[in-house]
Amino acid sequence: MAEKMKRNVSFAKQEEQGDGIGDAGLPETKRIKTFKEKHSLDSDEEDKVDETATYRMNEEEIEGAEDDDDGTAESDDDIKITPFNLKQEMSEGYFDKDGNYHEKKDDDVHDEWLENIDWERLEEENAMKKQAEKGDEADDEDEGDAKVVRPELEVMREMLGFMKEGESVTKAMQRLGGGKRKTGSAAQRKAKKDSDSSSEVTAESKADMLKLTDLVDELVARGQFDMYQYTYEKIQHKLTQDEEAQAAKKDAEFDMFAEDVDKKKLTTNTNKQDESSGTGKDEMDPDKVYWEYKWENKDDADIYGPYQSEQMENWTNQDYFQDGVWVRKVGSGQNFYTSKRIDFSLYV
């Protein structure tokens, strides 16, 4: 029900919400002002305020003050009259050059949370964190793949043990967990009932599922957010790719010591290329999107490519395609689209 309500918003309202974001900026600037001493954020606006604010009227300059004894309320019959009590006003604020009254600012900061922030401690903590990060980076550089990347791949390798071919991680978890997924139609539900009785969730498969969950969690925590969508084949592909990369790295290391090996490496590399082009399309990663482009939208224009999405994105960002080129995904048929309307970062 709640879900339905959420979508119940009509389009006009959605747009209004979008506009509302701009307005939300107002309290933000107000809050920043209260920080002035600490962050010295000086905008033009702030300067102006300071100019007028520097001049404060003296008590003598203000006309029309009712110099009453203590400024206590007088009463005229039943009606109480509060006189223009300058003493009190001056203690609570000041008048600027134009005679505008300003209340003292410190009194109207009433944000418990803000007040409770221990800025010094926060800074210390930040510094510590930064240092720790730096340390990590240094470690990465020192030990390279050994420390961080290798376990990740090992985790993946372990995951493969729990999965079947053609399964995604989510599917594997569902299988091991006994398929608790909500089934849509009545027929599906019936089928599930039948299968439930035949394949009961054994304790073993449940343990497997928990292990798999742990492994995936570990990877997700490291920033592999789409881990759940990975299929058996994709993980396998990653592993073999890494093995190749490491082999290449080893070759490169050899190079430092002996130049003759270069030739050998070259030949092996070309061999590798031959192999992969035999199986796929010139070493193209099936998970990646490749693009072809031409400068003019004509049939006989030269087509360049294929290039990876990252490459296309870089070129676009560098204004290499200033007037737009005509692009199409490799293997997507004949349609060429103008690169201006394509957000390559979506395909990375």
């Binding site: 349609n335 689209y337 103008t338 309307r341 394509i342 957000d343 979506l346």
Partner: peptide, 9 residues
């Protein structure tokens, strides 16, 4: 993204 750009105009 809540809004995407269609490849074709």
């Amino acid at each position: 993204r809540g809004l995407v750009v269609s490849p074709k105009d």
